[in-house]
Every structure is written in structure tokens, then in C-alpha cells.
Write a protein that binds this DNA or RNA. Structure first.
Length: 576
RNA sequence: CGGGAUGUAGCUCAGCCUGGUAGAGCGCUACGUUCGGGACGUAGAGGCCGCAAGUUCGAAUCUUGUCAUCCCGACCA
């Protein structure tokens, strides 16, 4: 491809709205342009990279035994009502009605495609003999992001590969899941991006097992707890800590507990300022309502150290509740006799009281007094309040012991590029996708679902691979693999050699961008570094008089001078 | 949805406080000189100063409203 025949609007200056490196570079290198918040146009170079990533995904999906199909972006809102996800997605689900004849058609734009595909399976699968089956598609998805950000990393419209597996039982599900997991590893390896497979909560979609594939990156939106020694990796919501229940020891030199007036002081920060203590010397008591609206509804008080964050998933599992939410203000008043901000474990009644492992080692501690505008000091667990045992109830932190015993864990940021999880029968139950088993019984199909954000592969690659001059593309997803720069486009020998390199490389399957603009060398070199194609051939009059052209990788500091006849072979070697 | 900031040429920004007919650099066009890491000169093109209402003889500038974009937080199958 000649530069003059495509559109590569590179930018010398950084657009003011771009903050993260991938966003700035994608704009500067002419890969994308913003249309509105959360929606981007992919220009020729950016789109080529997306297509290359998508093709790798497609190949590996097919190699793993999945068949591609394609859904419309729109589907009837009823489908989403039947599964209960119109409600669950809320404003995230883009949906609208439009007139058709004398009636209204109400559609949703797919944020993912569990509903349409389950409906399809309901219609097409009748027997266990047709299972297992894995289908996938690469499609534009729509989600009304409340806050789009980080350029192309978080948008309201994005390209996603989603695959769904259907099986008769858990064994078939597990086999499909493992095959997808392995395919994902191959995909990210082929794309040349670093990744981490981390244990994850399966979230509102349900299911009982889930992994996220993350690109470690400073600007990632998610936190990953990781131990290199043991290989343990989990996202923050999920990460266990290797802590165990400590012995509760009451120090014998602590004076009796005392009440202090703390008018209007309702946050840990304010308590510390008012009483001159550190957050880790305080305890916070959080009130939750478990299983709201059921017979099992109850109030739960959770005590964690002042500087720690409670983890709702862990609390929910500790008490075996199906749902858990922060208690409302009325409940807090009823239980503690005080407004929000003054709860404490001392004398708290009528609630299930839970404490995190670290909470009982704060001796003495500062806690809320369960009365307005007051706190207690010199509080000791085992003396002034007590629990039978303690649990792991808080978010993991850097330095926490690894549950696999590997040693202190680190917390790193990551960009989620892929997610695999076992759905079970949530959607097949809701939408009636059943098969007839060998035993003559009808059962719901057991499903798994597996997503990859294609745009995120591209943005994530740039986020993790660039320098101060521009992008450094991994070979597999670079828009072109070789950048050919004729320095003097009016010189016939230079130009015909450039064209020859282009044609020979293309014939050999190496795609090339030939910079045929009438620009000064400095401009061409700077743009070449910005765009960051893996290899570059420079052809100049000066070199030709010495009988050489220059070949270099984007990552090389200096070019190598070689005979023109050897250039094509050299480039192919460098790309191999 | 809460908090903060910003909208002036294709891009980065000045001008606004103190109202008087719109500026710079980069980019773009033409010509000349240059020509191996973002050249120089000369001459040009390019602006409902986000939008609306108001105050005023007069608004980029003051007031009110509104829209958009970015950042932090909440949210995020």
C-alpha cells in the first residue's frame, strides 16, 4: 500500500483530551478518531490492526472446535425481559422502540448475546446427540457506558468475540471451558501481548467458575492480586488471602474502655483527625442486609480494620447468603440507635456479628459507640466484645500472604481483554433451551460463555509496547509488517527499488506501507517511529551510490546497511 | 449519577479579569532556497469565539441557561 493512497493523518501534537498512552498514540499515529464520547472511527491503519487481531481469534476459535456464526445487533426486547436482564442491565442496555406499520417494534442492541443464542439453541437442538457444541461470533456490541474513558479501552460500542458452549452436563461444560481457556492462552501469545489469567467472580451473569484474562498495565481499570512464586492470580473481588484466624489476646495493660464525644465525626478519616489516631488503630463496623425480601432476611454487622475495605462477596459466602447489600439508614438507626457513622461492635444486638481476621488484633481499638456523636476508645476484643471466630472478609492487599503459600502477594493493575466462565443453566432455564437425554429425560442445556474484547487487544498492545517516539507493534497485529521509505521520490532508481521491495515482500506475504509522500527525511522517519511498524527499509540516493540500503527493526537503535538484493530476505528473516 | 475542569482556525493554545470589529505556533496552499531524523524565506487560504437568551450604543470578553468533552469517584454481563 502506498501512503498516498490511504489515510494516515499523523499528529505532531498531542490532542488535549487524550490522557493514557494508548489513546494518545492511537490518535497521533492516525489509527482512530473520536466521533463522540465512547465511539471511535477506526481509520485504515487502526482497522487493519483490529482485523489482524480478529483473524487470530477466529483461527484459534476454529482450531478449538468452535464454529462461527453472526447475529444481528438488534433483538426484540422481550428476549431480554424473559431472561431478566433488561432489569439487570438497566441503563446499560441500549433499547428503543420505532414504528413499523401501525405498531411499535421495541428492540435492544446486544450488549452480549446469551439471549439470542440460547433462543437459537432452543429452536435447533433437541437431542443429546447434537451436543456438545461451541459457537462464536465477532460482533459489535453496545453498552451505554455511564462514563466512557481511556480512549478506545472503554467505549459504548466495541468489537467483541463471544463464544458459547452447550453441553449435556458439567463434564461437557468443563471440557469446553478448558478448550476455550487453552485457546485464549494461544490467542494472546500469538498477538504478542503479555497476559495473566486470573480467577474472577462470575458476577450477575451467574455461574460458578470464571477466569479473566488481563494485560498488566499501569492504566488498567482492574486490580489483580498476584503471586509470582505460586502463580496465584485473582482479581480484587475474588482474591483470597492466606491469613488464618488469630488467637484473640487481651493485653493486660489496657485501661477500661472510655466514651468520647465526637460530634459530626462519622468517617474513619475524621475520627483519626479528631482523636489523633491512625486508621489501623480503629475498627469500622459495616451493616448489611442479607437475602433482602426473603424469609431469610437478616442484618449483618461486619467489623474490619479502619484502613481495610470490606469485600461483599466474601461476606456473602461467609454467611451463605444469596444476596447482600448495605443496610439502609433506617435499619442502621434501628440496630445501632445512631445515625450512619457511629456503629461499633460493643453491645450490638439483634445482628449476625462477623469480624475479619485482622480486626481482632487491633488491641486496643477505637470504635463507634452505637450512639450519636460518640466513639469508644481502649476497646478490646475478648473483653469488651467478642466473636467465636474470624473470617477473611476484606479486599486483599499487597503484602498479604498467598493462599497457596507462595509468599507475599503483589497488587498490579490490568486491562481485562478476555473472560471465560461457566454459566450453567441460567439462560437455558430462563429461555427453555432443553434437550432429550439418552435416559428419555428432558434437561436444560449446560452453557459456558467466553468473551474477548478485540479493540482491547489492540489498545492493550500499544499500552504495553511503546516508547517516547511512538508505537512498537507486536508483529502479529501490526497494521503492516514493513515500512518502506524511499527518501527521494523523484529519483527513479530509488523509487523503482522501493516498488520492487514492496512487490516482492507482498508476494511473500509480508504486507508493506510505502511512504511515497514528498516529505523531508526527518518527517518520514518521525512518522515511521510513531506508527511503529516492526521493520523498516530506507532507500536513499546516498546509500545507493555505496550500493546499500538500510534495514532496521523498530526496536533497533541503528540500521544495518545491506546490498539491495539482500534486503527482502533480511526483512523476512527479521519477521520470522 | 456526585465532584472538578475546559469549550476561540485542522491541532496546541493566547486574548476574557478591565466590553470597542479575532491572534500566535504547528499544520495547509503557491513560489523560491533547501534536502539522511519533524528546514528557511515570501505570499496566501482558513474562525456563527460550542449554542441560546439577557445586559449594553457595542459582547469572544459581563449575566443566566443549555449542550459537549475530559479528569476523579459511583457504576461496569
Amino acid at each position: 500500500m502506498r501512503w498516498s493512497q490511504t489515510l494516515v493523518p499523523t499528529l505532531k501534537e498531542v490532542p488535549a483530551d487524550a490522557e493514557v498512552p494508548s489513546h494518545r498514540l492511537m490518535l497521533r499515529a492516525g489509527l482512530v478518531r473520536q466521533v463522540m464520547a465512547g465511539a471511535y472511527t477506526y481509520l485504515p491503519l487502526g482497522w487493519r490492526a483490529v482485523r489482524k487481531a480478529a483473524e487470530i481469534v477466529r483461527e484459534e476459535m476454529e482450531a478449538a472446535g468452535a464454529a462461527e456464526l453472526h447475529f444481528p445487533a438488534m433483538s426484540p426486547i422481550e428476549l431480554w425481559e424473559r431472561s431478566g436482564r433488561r432489569e439487570a442491565f438497566g441503563n446499560v442496555l441500549l433499547n428503543f422502540a420505532f414504528p413499523r406499520g401501525d405498531r411499535k417494534v421495541h428492540v435492544a442492541l446486544g450488549p452480549t448475546h446469551e439471549e439470542p443464542i440460547t433462543d437459537l439453541i432452543k429452536q435447533s437442538i433437541a437431542s443429546y446427540k447434537q451436543l456438545p457444541l461451541t459457537l462464536f461470533q465477532i460482533q459489535t456490541k453496545f453498552r451505554n457506558e455511564e462514563r466512557p474513558r481511556f480512549g478506545v479501552l472503554r467505549t459504548s460500542e466495541f468489537l467483541m468475540k463471544d463464544a458459547y458452549s452447550f453441553g449435556t452436563d458439567i463434564e461437557q461444560l468443563n471440557a469446553s471451558y478448558d478448550a476455550m481457556y487453552a485457546a485464549y492462552c494461544r490467542i494472546f501469545e500469538r498477538c504478542g501481548i503479555p497476559y495473566l489469567a486470573v480467577e474472577a467472580e462470575s458476577g450477575p451473569i451467574g455461574g460458578d467458575a470464571s477466569h479473566e484474562f488481563m494485560i498488566p498495565a499501569e492504566n488498567g481499570e482492574d486490580s489483580v492480586v498476584h503471586c509470582e512464586a505460586s502463580g496465584y492470580a485473582a482479581n480484587l473481588e475474588r482474591a483470597e488471602t492466606g491469613r488464618t484466624a488469630p488467637q484473640i489476646v487481651v493485653p493486660d495493660d489496657v485501661p477500661p474502655m472510655d466514651a468520647v464525644a465526637t460530634p459530626g465525626v462519622s468517617t474513619i478519616e475524621a475520627v483519626c483527625a479528631a482523636l489523633g489516631v491512625q486508621p489501623e488503630q480503629t475498627l469500622k463496623t459495616l451493616l448489611y442486609t442479607a437475602d433482602a425480601g426473603t424469609d431469610e432476611e437478616r442484618t449483618v454487622a461486619v467489623v474490619v480494620r479502619g484502613d481495610h475495605d470490606a469485600n461483599e462477596g466474601k461476606i456473602r459466602r461467609a454467611i451463605g447468603a444469596a444476596t447482600l447489600s448495605m443496610a439502609d439508614e433506617a435499619t442502621v438507626r434501628r440496630v445501632t440507635g445512631a445515625p450512619v457513622g457511629f456503629a461499633g461492635p460493643v453491645g450490638l444486638e439483634g445482628v449476625t456479628l462477623l469480624a475479619d481476621h485482622d480486626a481482632v488484633t487491633v488491641q486496643p481499638s477505637v470504635v463507634g459507640a452505637n450512639s450519636a456523636d460518640a466513639h469508644r476508645t481502649n476497646v478490646c476484643c475478648g473483653r469488651d466484645w467478642t466473636v467465636e471466630t474470624t473470617h477473611d472478609l476484606r479486599d486483599a492487599r499487597a503484602g498479604d500472604p498467598d493462599p497457596k503459600g507462595g509468599g507475599p502477594m503483589k497488587v498490579v493493575r490490568g486491562i481485562e481483554v478476555g473472560h471465560v466462565f461457566k454459566l450453567g443453566t441460567k439462560y437455558s432455564d430462563a429461555l427453555g433451551a432443553e434437550y432429550l437425554g439418552e435416559d428419555q429425560k428432558r434437561r436444560s442445556v449446560v452453557m459456558g460463555c467466553y468473551g474477548i474484547g478485540i479493540n482491547r487487544i489492540v489498545a492493550g498492545a500499544i499500552e504495553t509496547s511503546h516508547d517516547d517516539r511512538g508505537i512498537i507493534w507486536p508483529k502479529a497485529i501490526a497494521p503492516y509488517q514493513c515500512h518502506i521509505i524511499p527518501l527521494d521520490i523523484k529519483d527513479e532508481e530509488v523509487m523503482s527499488l522501493a516498488q520492487r521491495f514492496h512487490d516482492e515482500l507482498e508476494a511473500a506475504g509480508v504486507d508493506c506501507l510505502l511512504d511515497d509522500r514528498k516529505e523531508r527525511p526527518g518527517v518520514k522517519f518521525a512518522d515511521a517511529d510513531l506508527i511503529g511498524l516492526p521493520t523498516r527499509i530506507t532507500i536513499g540516493k546516498r546509500g545507493l551510490t555505496e550500493g546499500v540500503v538500510e534495514v532496521k527493526r523498530r526496536t533497533d537503535a541503528d540500521p544495518e546497511k545491506i546490498a539491495p538484493d539482500a534486503a527482502v530476505a533480511r526483512v523476512r528473516e527479521l519477521l520470522a
